[in-house]
Amino acid sequence: MKSFANIDVKSVREAVTLLQKLHQEKKSAEIVSGGTELLQLMKDRVATPQYLINLKTIPGLNYIKEERSGFRIGALTTLTEIEEHKGVREKLLFLSQAAGEAASPQLRNAGTIGGNICQRPFCWYFRSANFPCLRKGGGICYAVAGDNRYHAILGGGPSYIVHPSDTAPALIALGARIKITGPAGEKTIPLEKFFVLPQVDYKRENILQPGEILTEVQIPHPKPGSKGFYHKVRERQAWDHAIVSVSTVVQSKGGICQDAHVVLGGVAPIPWRAAKAEAFLRGKKVDEGTARQVGEIALDGARPMKDNVYKIGMAKSLIQRALLASV
C-alpha cells in the first residue's frame, strides 16, 4: 500500500468537517469502517487516498434498535451482528440470511452494513491497476470486448459492472431507507434512490458527495400477510459473490398478490428493482403461470454480452421460484 495517514474520528460531525476540509484542500480521502474492501483496493493501487477517515472510533454508530415503526441499524453494525440478531431473524424475513451469506465469516465480522452498501465493484478490470477502465477515468469498459461472464445484463452501458452488495437488494425489497449525514445536515432517502446507473455517472456507484456519510439504515416492519424469499446463486456454496440473487417480498391474501417487491442482485450496476413486473403481479393470483410471466417481464430488455447470456434464464427461474415460495 502507498503511504497514507489514518485519522480516527470521534463523531460523525468531526468526520464530515474533516472530509470537507480535505476536499477543499484538494487532498484525497476515503471513509473506512470495516476496511475489508478498501484495503484491497489500496493494495492494488486502485485507490490511493492520502487520508483514511476511520469511522470505527465513533461511539454509538453500532446498534440495532427495534421500534414501533421498524428497525434502525447503525452504519457501523457488522454483518455478523445483523445475521445473529434475534429480532432481525424473527421479523425481517431474509435480511439475516442475506447478511449471513455475504463473503466469509472473517469478512462478516469486520464488514459493516454501511460499508457493504457502499462497496465498489468487483469487476476484475476495475480491480486491476493494469486496466485503465472507464470507471477509473480511462477510455473504455473492458468488459465489453473482454471476459464478461459476471457482468451486467440489465442497466449496463457505458460501464457494465454489477453491484456487489448482497444486503442492498434484500434491503430494497424490504423497503429500507437510509440516513445520510453531511455538511448540510441529515437527510433520509429510500435506499433505492441511493444508487447511480452508469448512464448517469459511470464513475460512481452511489450519490454520496464529498463530506457525506451513510449513517443509518431504517427498515419498516413487513406488512401483515407478507412473505419473503431470498436466494443467492454463486459458483461455490460459500465465500463468493452472487452471480444472480433474488429478493422478493409478496404481500398476499388468499393467494392474490396485494403488493410485491422484486429485486435482483448480480445482474445490473445497481440493485435492480423489477418495477414493471411488480405492477403486473399486483391483484393477480400467484401461480406458476403468473410467476413465469413476472420473470419474463422482469428480464424484458435484458442485453446480455457474449459470456453472460446464462444470467437471463437464471434470473427468470429464480423469480419464479421466489414467487411460488411467497404465497
Binding site: 484495503l39 472473517q106 469486520a110
Partner: peptide
C-alpha cells in the same frame, strides 16, 4: 487480500483476516 484465510487471528473473540 482477504480471501484465503491463512492470516486469520481472533480479535475480541471473533475471527478476522489480519491482512485486512
Amino acid at each position: 487480500r482477504g480471501e484465503c484465510g491463512a492470516c486469520t487471528v481472533i480479535i475480541n473473540g471473533r475471527s478476522f483476516y489480519s491482512c485486512s
